[in-house]
Design a protein around this nucleic acid. Structure first.
Lengths: 222, 222
DNA sequence: GTTTGTGAACCACTTCACAGCC
DNA sequence: GGCTGTGAAGTGGTTCACAAAC
């Protein structure tokens, strides 16, 4: 598969993991990595790595491996990260609060620039260097601050309404943490993270682990 | 495929989603659901639902659908949920704090019974009705409280050490939120949730959404 | 008529194995 | 000799389509 054609979904889900591993390698001043290195650090098969990377183009050198800095740049480009993306959080409960302060977003090129809550007692409170805004400000704040992605951390019953409001405001990428299935119009990208689901999946494999030994390393959402 | 043989990984990942939908249906006093109902509420294809459920056995009635209460019981049994599972959280930063109070766990049969942190200034602080314990208490507390699953919410650099300690203490199911790949011995079940990865995947599809329209609804873990 | 359960067809992803390049 | 890039083979998952059950 030569240069960037349609990239398989499964590959897209692994690219961020490679990126993480490559950053670690870069910190250790490693100039090049082999598919074998990358694979073992990412917890996948080496052939997998090579095939995944071949979807982006031919960025390796036979006999040598992949140039770390160069590969980081290419993956960032493919994922559309790098120029910092503006993120809003709707629903400032425990989880929303935690995500607003989560360092793992900033270090990956995302910046939380707005926070909203429907509860008047929360509106106006500080959240790091942000002020929690009322839902009625959503439309204006989204366009003023150039928000392109939003995290929904409301209770389940409020999530669909919030999603509708976000879509109406022009936000086209939603990451939903509320434990409910959302409907969005075509063209809007939606991903679901349900922490309860993760524990239940874990529970299944733990239960099995007694009889047949199973070791499941999985990526998120993946 | 008659009655419970080996259940495909992809099916296991969807069962908790069906469970969530079934609980919603139960609240609405719906006695039976068709695969079509279930599918549309879960965001998948109806044939998928039927095939998934057929792996558990034949619990539907042709011409009628599936009995909600009965199906909930069966899925819970297969997943090994129901008898409340004891969970520990290691790393009481923003995220650990939020997860300790997350209602979505309790309502799904999981109970957070212990919290640990390596930072002496956090040890002894209250967290709901728990007290944060030092890492040195991990072994004892795990066995006393019957912990079988743990959430790792430490910084990345501490995660492997914590995983090792948990495994040594006899915890055989780990859900890792730290953005790093962990190594665990055979027989230990490990799942990875990386919130930064989720945003990066979202970013990729958002970027595409302009040209070709893609709408990606995904379940967690994938 | 409705809806399940399932073989068969299809499609996507993974792994193998090796030619080609350094 | 070492390592990538990739066809080919293998595996697993999804969707179709229909017979069987109600």
């Amino acid at each position: 598969m030569r240069a960037g054609r349609r990239i398989p979904e499964a590959t897209v889900a692994r690219l961020p993991v490679y990126l993480r591993v490559l950053h670690e390698a870069a910190e250790e001043r490693t100039a090049t990595v082999s598919s074998e290195d990358l694979a073992s650090r990412a917890g996948v098969n080496a052939a997998q790595v090579r095939k995944d990377l071949s979807h982006l183009g031919s960025y390796g050198t036979r006999g040598i491996g992949y140039n770390v800095v160069y590969l980081v740049r290419e993956i960032n480009r493919v994922l559309g990260v790098g120029d910092d993306r503006r993120v809003a959080i709707v629903g400032i409960g425990n989880l929303g609060h935690a995500l607003a302060g989560y360092g793992g977003f900033v270090s990956r090129g995302f910046r939380v620039v707005a926070a909203f809550d429907a509860d008047p007692s929360k509106v106006g409170s500080r959240l790091g260097d942000l002020t929690v805004l009322p839902m009625s400000d959503l439309g204006d704040a989204v366009s003023e601050k150039g928000v392109t992605m939003a995290l929904i951390t409301t209770p389940a019953h409020a999530a669909q309404g919030v999603a509708d409001a976000l879509v109406a405001a022009g936000v086209a990428s939603l990451l939903n943490f509320a434990p409910t299935t959302l409907q969005v119009p075509e063209g809007v990208v939606l991903r679901q993270v349900d922490l309860g689901v993760e524990l239940q999946i874990l529970s299944f494999y733990e239960q099995r682990a007694g009889r047949d030994v199973r070791d499941e390393a999985t990526l998120a959402r993946a």
